[in-house]
Every structure is written in structure tokens, then in C-alpha cells.
Computed example of a mutant assay.
Amino acid sequence: MKRIGLFLLTNIAVIAVAMLVMNLLGVGNYMEGTSLNLGNLFMFALIFGFAGSFVSLAMSKWMAKMSTGAKVIEQPRNADETWLLETVARQAAKAGIKTPEVAIYDSPEPNAFATGMTKNKSLVAVSTGLLRSMRQNEVEAVLGHEVAHIANGDMVTMALLQGVVNTFVIFFAKIVAYVVDRVILKNQEEGHSWTFIIVDMVAQIFFGILASMITMWFSRKREFHADNGGAYLAGKENMIAALKRLQTMQPGVLPDQMAAFGISAGGSKFGALFMSHPPLEERIAALEATPQSALKVA
């Protein structure tokens, strides 16, 4: 129920922001009688496409804490929490960013994620399962991987990419719906007919699948860079050891908005093209082939 509530809240916020921006910019209806106003349609698609991405980005830290139950370490209660704070602070300084908030969430499955709207207002969270099942040097490498995501600006980059693909999905889906409805079927009904609505929905699903392939391809490329950054921040051998340890474990399931920034993810039931993370053996091989001098953040 909590995830459903958060999903509804996010979508209400997206619609509210999009409508406010449309009113401020004076964007009119893209359907004028039986004609399609391409200028208004593009602005409509642009606003709604980016509203979803940036509302999700702006709410990402709050959503992460709410959906996973992650508790930020304000005052460390034990040596492990002290070590976590000190390690992330040291890595953040080396990466040239402000120290992120550090949190722990209760889950028996090993995983970790990073999120946040900017490099200097971010969050790194690890599961209790990861802390229990990994050696300290491996946990350090996982933290380095997540700090590298932040330092590389991956959250903002992914939001921008998602906004672009969302825009074109909405724009081209409505053009296809208009062509089918008005040109092929020659419907002269003003406004949105049922044919337009149904074709628009089907076209958005089709273009959305293609868009997902693009975003997941970029996500997989970004994971190699985060591994590289993690090796720079925590040591190459430690990063390789952490990835090898993950090969022996079942990764924890994260909410969709954080899954792309987790340390690991399971395979996609829709195939390799829809995986947010490359296979662990590919990540290990890439890191082993990278010379020490090439390790870096950003």
C-alpha cells in the first residue's frame, strides 16, 4: 500500500507541475477542432515529458527513505555506523563532492543505492543484508561505487535522458494517433475521439518500449563508469572482490526509481536489452582489463 500511495502522490505532483508550467507559458490545446497544432503538441510533450523526470528527481531522496524505510545515520550508535560515515566522507572528499547522507535500511538481501537531486544533496544507503554478508573491504568498494554514481552526476543525467525520451514518446504517439484517426479513418469529430485515445495509448506503449531500450543501454554503460570510480575510491582489488562476492548472492529488489542506481540487479524477464545493469562477469572482466592509471571518477 505504501508504494501505491507514493506512486499516486508522485503522479499527482507531476500533473500539478505540468499544468502550472503550461498555464505560465500559455500553452494552448494541441487539438484545434479537427487540426493538430504541432507547436502546442511539442510544448505539451516537452512539459509532461520533463515534469515526470524532474519531479521524480526532486522527490528522490524522500521517496527512497519512505519506500525502503532507510534511516539516516545522524549520530552513530556503534563502530560499524562510525566506520560507514567516515568511509563515505573520505570517499566524497576524494571525489570532490559534499558528503552524502548515509543511511541503512532493513533488508536481508544485499544491495545499496545512491540517489539525490544534485551531487551535493545526495544519499547513499546500504542494506543490513549487505553489511552482514560482505567483508569490510567489499562494503567499502560498494560505497565507492555509489559515491561514484553521485560524483558522475548520473541521477541528473538519467533524468535528462528520461525527459528527452518521454517527450518524443508522447509527441510521436499523438501524431500516429492523429494520422490513424483523421487521415486513415477520416474521422471529423472535434477533439479526442475514442479511436485517437486508444491508438495513442497503444503507440505510447510501443514507443515506450523502444525508449526503455535506450535508457537501459545508457544505464548499463553508466555502471561500468561507476565500477571504475569505485575502484579509484576504494581500490581496484576491493571493487573486483565486491563484484565477485555479489556473484554468489541474490541481489535485493529495489523500488523502480532506485533500481538503476543499485550496486546490482537481477536479469530482466524481457531480455538483455532491458537490463539496467550489465552481467557481473562483464563488469569484472572490464575492471580487470582497466589499468590502474585509467581509474577515475567523472
Rank of each mutant, 00 (worst) to 15 (best):
E190P: 13
V142A: 02
A211E: 08
E32D: 05
E109A: 00
A125T: 01
E288M: 05
V21F: 14
G28Q: 11
V72F: 06
A286I: 00
N111P: 11
M59Y: 15
M249R: 12
A231M: 08
G39K: 12
A173T: 14
M134I: 00
V147G: 03
V147S: 04
N40H: 14
V17Y: 12
T215C: 10
A203V: 05
I263S: 15
I209R: 13
L280P: 05
K221C: 10
H149D: 01
L254F: 00
R283M: 05
T99Y: 06
A177D: 09
A103D: 08
M134F: 13
F7D: 03
P251R: 11
G230L: 00
R77V: 09
N23A: 11
V176Y: 08
N228Q: 15
N228R: 15
N40C: 13
D200L: 07
M22T: 14
G163S: 05
V72A: 11
V164C: 07
A70E: 07
S133H: 04
L46E: 01
K61H: 11
L6K: 14
F207A: 02
A177G: 08
A272G: 04
P255Q: 13
L6M: 11
Q250W: 05
G28D: 07
I73G: 09
M249V: 03
A125Y: 02
M239K: 07
W62P: 01
M275R: 10
W83E: 04
D256Q: 15
S276Q: 13
Y232P: 00
A259E: 08
E281R: 15
N120C: 03
